[in-house]
């Protein structure tokens, strides 16, 4: 009897106890607990009391309610976020939550409006507020320069937002790319030249003109032209542009697992090549490059007889 009494006492007099117990449970199971877990832990608790405690915790923002395949889950909320959110109203919390869910990809203010159903002016006010508290930050996306996305302050923006190594302040560093492009080509070219001058058998010559992407990467790193750290993938992207420039060829060979620069047992080899044609005959005549070629007719305003480009070319 006394036992029961004691329990009842605890239950009745100290709802805080229950709350603490629930929080403890949540801490034990960091991925979240179900209703069943609480029930098993405190079998004598009345469902109403349990609900009361949980509701209180939820309203205080200390507990998160989630849904998974097995039913509802309770999880402890980030205490840091909670402490930062002190003094914020529900709307602010809601917006913060939405931004948090977006992760490091960020979310556009219009999408926040759709998700929160709050008016845009209200959202703007909240966003400003949160920004000043350094809870969130605005990042300009490279996909659309006018579009700002919001994410939590401490997050590193995703590559798709910043554009990776090739962007600084959402501007594409085309000069940087061109410099790298030229440097990579220079490296491969000098390698090919050395191979050619080696006077070895043609097969050896060809094979020694190849460089792995790892070698190119090392060369570029040692050159120190890049302020940012470039990955091997970045260098391969650059080498690919050289392929599209028709200056470089690539082959893939099988490599022993664990060899430097091999990925999934493959190694990419690059080498500088010469073009098969000199500039074709057509472009040596002024007409081949003429911007008004289609408007040129004998007897017309623009004609071969009065063509200025042709005159300049003839007198050159």
């Amino acid at each position: 009897m006394a036992e029961v009494k004691v329990k009842k006492e605890i239950n009745l007099s100290e709802p805080a106890e229950i709350e603490n117990r629930i929080k403890e449970l949540c801490q034990q199971f960091s991925h979240g607990i179900t209703d069943q877990v609480i029930q098993n832990d405190m079998p004598h608790l009345e469902p109403q009391q349990r609900a009361l405690a949980i509701n209180k915790l939820l309203s205080l923002g200390q507990l998160d309610l989630m849904r998974n395949s097995s039913g509802l889950l309770y999880r402890l909320k980030d205490s840091t976020g909670v402490s930062k959110m002190k003094g914020s109203d529900n709307q602010e919390k809601l917006v913060y939550q939405i931004i948090e869910d977006a992760g490091n990809k960020g979310i556009w203010s219009r999408d926040i409006r759709f998700k929160s159903n709050l008016p845009l002016t209200e959202i703007n006010k909240i966003l400003k507020n949160l920004e000043s508290k350094k809870l969130i930050k605005a990042v300009k996306s490279v996909a659309a320069s006018k579009k700002k996305v919001y994410m939590l302050y401490n997050l590193q923006p995703d590559r798709s937002v910043t554009g990776g190594a090739w962007y600084s302040d959402q501007d594409f560093e085309s000069e940087f790319v061109e410099v790298l492009n030229q440097q990579c080509f220079k490296f491969l070219q000098s390698k090919a030249e050395v191979a050619r001058d080696s006077k070895q058998s043609p097969m050896v010559q060809r094979n020694s003109s190849f460089a792995t992407s790892h070698e190119v990467w090392k060369y570029i790193c040692e050159l120190g032209i890049s302020k940012v750290d470039l990955s091997m993938d970045d260098i391969e992207t650059i080498l690919n542009t050289l392929i599209y420039d028709g200056k470089v060829e690539m082959t893939v060979i099988a490599a022993k697992e664990g060899t430097v620069g091999s990925v999934n047992g493959q190694m990419k080899l690059y080498r500088g090549v010469n073009p098969i044609l000199q500039p074709t005959g057509l472009v040596k005549a002024p007409c081949g490059l003429c911007p008004v070629f289609d408007d040129c007719h004998e007897g017309g305003e623009i004609s071969p007889s009065n063509c200025l480009y042709m005159t300049e070319w003839l007198d050159f």
Partner: peptide
Amino acid sequence: NLARATLESVVQERFGSRSARIFRL
């Protein structure tokens, strides 16, 4: 291949090497 190189060469000379890159791509 020679004809392709000819086309590439025309694009390269007329529109610059970056356009030629797109064309080859």
